[in-house]
Nucleic acid binder design. Structure first.
Lengths: 248, 248
DNA sequence: CGTTCGGTTGAGTAGGCTCAAGCTTAGTGG
DNA sequence: CCACTAAGCTTGAGCCTACTCAACCGAACG
């Protein structure tokens, strides 16, 4: 898995990025901020890169930051005392990590891929938020979007079959990690999660994920380039299989 | 079902409540507002009472309001094209209904019990929110709390057994609809939902809900006063059965 | 060449679903 | 006052989907 490279990327050194050239400038929590507000944020921010599998913050632990995901994918999961796990959120570039309120989150946050965060120290961030409606407005939008996503996932977890869940997951990936591919011809995307992670996300076991993935392949809806890359061959059929054709 | 009484309560006449004597004044979206802000809200608000089972707003429909639940319980549910339903939220007194952004919600909102809403016209509410940080702050807190609740429910739907789901549900009711009963001696609460609604909420069938409820009764954890009222006989055992003992 | 890890495939099991019948309660009308 | 009905709930029997346990495969690595 390239331990050497991983160790290197874990170094806690600032990534040379300023806000103007930031890839998530238009969508992150700072999206509505003007130049002056940005410079105040700049004063309390720091970048940090995490290796795949590295814990960002554990459930219930205090964390003196909030953060935007700049690149990479972050898993949010909950665990029962006997070890059963359920992923309750999957954060992509521009998504926000951490509660503004001081209440500790009851989720683990773990980097799924190599991930760079733009972290803000919590206390000054909260103080700044009170004085900066732009910041609060955008955070409210982001939180509402996450609530929508959580509710869509509740429908999946409560009512969809294994095959529908896997198909839905692939569509989510296509939309979120490669928006261009969704409408374009390519319709190819990488899966930023292991089978283990996928089963945590979908409320299934790795065996069931594997079986249903193979089934979608055999039916000609998708092609598995390798275990971590897929191409959609029949988008309409995949949407049907996912029960995500909101035509009616 | 008392159709006569229902028809009466459905009349669209203002409930004689002013903000000062409002039962949810300290927790609703207006909780942080001062007197002047309240009077601005007062100018755009109207009360409306819904009968049990009455639709407040359908999935995807536009709704020219946002609202606080004053009394009663509101179900938020999603439906697949073949009829499978999943409840994705259960709103009690002081909870907030409707997105501040104009994006239509993809959930039905249906009154579970007789419910009174304090509605604000959407457009002036949004305008007011931009000028009133108190409003936006409180709405952010409320939205984050709902996101937490949604994530807890995702763990339930993805990983808990039927018995654990039912036990968790009863504990939620105890906490949310009768907070006093949770710590006090009574530990008795009414169930504001039919078995059908409960099964929608827990991602189960009504038969499974009924069976597991009976099981909890036979094991002496709860007593069913009637189908809509229960008393907790062994709180510790119920928390264990729900896998909600966060001791470790 | 052996080991390990992530993924796939196979056989058998079990928990929740389906279909069906029975029970309880409230409301209705003779 | 007592059938009769209807709706909500409970109970029972059998089935099916996803889980468990186990073996196997292939690539990466030492």
């Amino acid at each position: 898995m390239g331990v050497e490279r991983v160790a290197f990327s874990m170094k806690d050194q600032p990534v040379p990025t300023d806000c103007c050239s930031c890839p998530i400038r238009d969508r992150a929590v700072c999206a509505l901020c003007d130049g002056e507000e940005l410079s105040k944020l700049d004063a309390i921010k720091s970048y940090k890169t995490y290796a795949p599998g590295q814990e960002i913050v554990g459930a219930g632990e205090p964390w003196p930051y909030v953060a935007s995901v700049v690149t990479g994918v972050v898993k949010l999961s909950k665990t029962l005392s006997d070890g059963r796990r359920q992923m309750v959120g999957l954060l992509f570039a521009s998504d926000f990590l951490g509660r503004a309120a001081n209440r500790p989150d009851t989720c683990d946050a773990i980097a799924a891929t190599e991930t760079t965060l733009c972290r803000f120290r919590r206390e000054p961030f909260e103080a700044l938020m009170k004085k900066t409606p732009h910041l609060e407005q955008r955070l409210l939008q982001i939180t509402q979007d996450e609530l929508d996503a959580a509710r869509a996932q509740m429908l999946l977890l409560g009512r969809k079959t294994a095959k529908e869940r896997v198909a839905s997951f692939l569509l989510t990936l296509l939309r979120r990690s490669a928006p261009a591919a969704f409408t374009g011809q390519a319709r190819i995307a990488t899966i930023p999660l292991s089978r283990d992670d996928i089963s945590d996300y979908l409320g299934l076991t790795i065996e069931t994920v594997s079986r249903r993935m193979t089934e979608l392949k055999k039916e000609g809806l998708i092609e598995l380039v390798d275990a971590r890359t897929f191409r959609v061959l029949d988008l309409q059929a995949l949407e049907d299989a996912a029960q995500e054709n909101y035509s009616e």
